[in-house]
Design a protein around this nucleic acid. Structure first.
Lengths: 244, 244
DNA sequence: GTGTACCCGCGTGTATACACTTCCGGGTTC
DNA sequence: GAACCCGGAAGTGTATACACGCGGGTACAC
């Protein structure tokens, strides 16, 4: 049983979430289930994803599973190597920093475009999201809080007037969440940084694009600093250790 | 024969390029072949891509073709609808403008990061690319010129220190090329705009990131202005035409 | 002549069978 | 005792068979 602990431990969690929907899942369902499991750390980085097991779990054949895995690989959620089981992506420290830098560039532009361009209803939804995030935070519901916190950034991505930039932003938000799950130090309340979110929404509401962009950059820098990027387990230099 | 002219006319062009490699193509080969055919307009937007025909053409089964098509759809090169043949993407005017705007944001940052960070050899390669582009331009080799011109931007994407941003840039360059192929007015020498490319490389060589970024934005604006975005065939307002 | 309903063919959606590759474990040999 | 070799189990890679959905064409009715 020690041969593939990640698989045996995590795969059942996939069905736990959605109950007994073992029948007739399509590739989109599988895609979202795995994605969500990765984000909530039920599937930690490096977890193995055997096609047959997934197929049995969702009640479909490997064809569907393979399609979902191909899409997940295209979105950098998992890694596929020839003749080997797919594994949940395990971004390096370097890649993590680059993801944050890239997101700073894109999200700054996204909020700039959003500023003054969102409807009253959109702003209302944003304020509601922040309220729910705080509530989840205070009641200690980890998964809920992660979803709400990420939800604000996803909302901005989905409502950016530039749909192309919005989709890029969405992908980066999700990748960011993965690395946060990977490198987050225990106890840190990621992305719940003071009232950054509240201030950001107000800047957007008042059409102050430049200030919103600046705040986002600062917000992401603070977030990146909270990560424990010193943990270099995956980049151990065997030579320096074993050399006499 | 009028039922699917695009397919019958264009699909044979796929094999024409690679000669007689009808044996044992993998999904990567198919992916690249279709991608290249789209970029060089051998497969114009809207072209149908039947799985069986592609399979026979490349000597593989539909499984491989489907994998390639799934990846192409993820990269916005083709569009897949349930129970319908995949078609080459046909970006709207609005999406085209958004692609250019997004690329301005990303590429400006990419060249800023490249400035002063490229090796002597890289700069040498860039200057060589520009030379080849000019040569292809003057000798009237359309396909070659398109490749070289795009090649400079792809080179910058691939050599950007931030690999994440580089990959986003690469995708946007390719999508830009698609819309250029789609909306280019006859006779326009797209992306061969004076000595923009030469000046850009020199800015990068001298580490003048801000000036390089500014030039890129200007370059892309000029390029977008050359397109005939008034052509709204796909968004015809029937009401305004048929109303008495 | 026109409108409608049915049928058939083409193409995709899904499942499954089989071949190949990889990895692990035991046995043998030096 | 250690290293190498070999065999089998598990998993992916690919092809193929069959089911389903859509669209066009024809025949029939009005």
């Amino acid at each position: 049983m020690a041969s593939r602990p990640a698989t045996e431990a995590a795969l059942p969690n996939l069905e736990k979430r959605s109950g007994k929907q073992r029948r007739k899942a399509n590739d989109q369902t599988i895609y979202e289930s795995i994605y969500d499991a990765v984000l909530t750390q039920r599937l930690p980085p490096g977890s193995k994803l055997p096609e047959v097991a997934l197929g049995e779990l969702f009640g479909v054949s490997r064809s569907i599973v393979r399609k979902a895995l191909t899409r997940l690989a295209a979105d950098h959620v998992i890694e596929q190597r020839p003749n080997q089981m797919a594994t949940v992506a395990k971004p390096s420290v370097e890649e993590t920093q680059q993801i944050f830098e890239a997101r700073k560039t894109i999200e700054a532009e996204v909020v700039r475009l959003c500023a003054g361009a969102l409807s009253k209803g959109d702003l209302q939804s944003l304020r509601q999201l922040i309220k729910e995030e705080k509530a989840a935070h205070e009641s200690g519901q980890h998964q809920e809080r992660v979803h709400r916190s990420m939800g604000l950034h996803l909302f901005l991505a989905d409502h950016c007037p530039n749909r192309v930039l919005g989709k890029i932003q969405r992908e980066l938000v999700l990748r960011t969440s993965i690395v946060i799950a990977l490198y987050k130090v225990a106890g840190v309340q990621a992305c719940f940084l003071g009232d950054d979110h509240s201030r950001l929404v107000e800047f957007i509401a008042k059409g102050k694009g430049d200030q919103a962009a600046a705040l986002v950059r600062e917000h992401l820098d603070t977030l990146a600093d909270l990560l424990d990027l010193k943990d270099q387990q995956s980049t151990i230099d065997l030579a320096s250790i074993l050399r006499p």
